[in-house]
């Protein structure tokens, strides 16, 4: 059993970055509407940036803040949208709406309250960014440091 486990772990590098598309998962947005993360973000050649975050995650808030400061300028260059997927659970999910408005952010927010999407994508830590174009995952990154939003934008532009 143990040996097979080790063998399977060794296999994993083969699959890294093999993630091909968003799963067929429905989440509620702040307007109480269901959105399917695979089906509903499908405008041809438009870039969708799914940013996984939580109200208690400081680097996540820094990342969304930095994107928010630049988003108007960037949107003039590229057709893209940011979808902020909150992984807050029942403890903190009620903070999402006042926080988003209090910070004056203009993102569509999806609530992954029991972490169905996070678990399906096997995301261990937030922040985590998944960029989708024409229903295909084209870029993934986890973690955030100051200035990384510029690199993210360069990636988006190059798609």
């Amino acid at each position: 059993m143990k040996n097979i486990f080790v063998f399977l772990i060794c296999l994993t590098p083969l699959f890294i970055n093999a993630q091909s598309q968003m799963p067929n998962v429905r989440l509620k947005n702040l307007d109480n509407d269901y959105k399917n993360v695979y089906e509903d973000y499908n405008k041809k050649d438009k870039v969708y940036v799914f940013s996984f975050w939580a109200t208690w995650c400081a680097p996540c808030l820094s990342e969304l803040e930095s994107i928010s400061e630049n988003i108007e300028e960037w949107k003039e260059e590229v057709d893209f949208d940011v979808i902020a997927v909150s992984v807050d659970d029942a403890r903190t999910v009620k903070r999402v709406k006042p926080l988003i408005n209090g910070k004056d952010w203009d993102y569509e927010v999806l609530l992954d309250t029991n972490q169905e999407l996070k678990r399906t994508l096997q995301i261990s830590n937030v922040p985590h960014v998944i960029v989708v174009k024409n229903k295909k995952v084209v870029y993934v990154h986890n973690g955030y440091v100051e200035g990384a939003e510029e690199e993210l934008f360069e990636e988006i532009k190059s798609l």
Binding site: R95, K97, L99, I100, G102, D104
Partner: peptide, 11 residues
């Protein structure tokens, strides 16, 4: 319950 508008959130 709460009240939110642009720039303000109370929960």
């Amino acid at each position: 319950f709460g009240y939110t508008k642009s720039g303000l959130g109370v929960d």
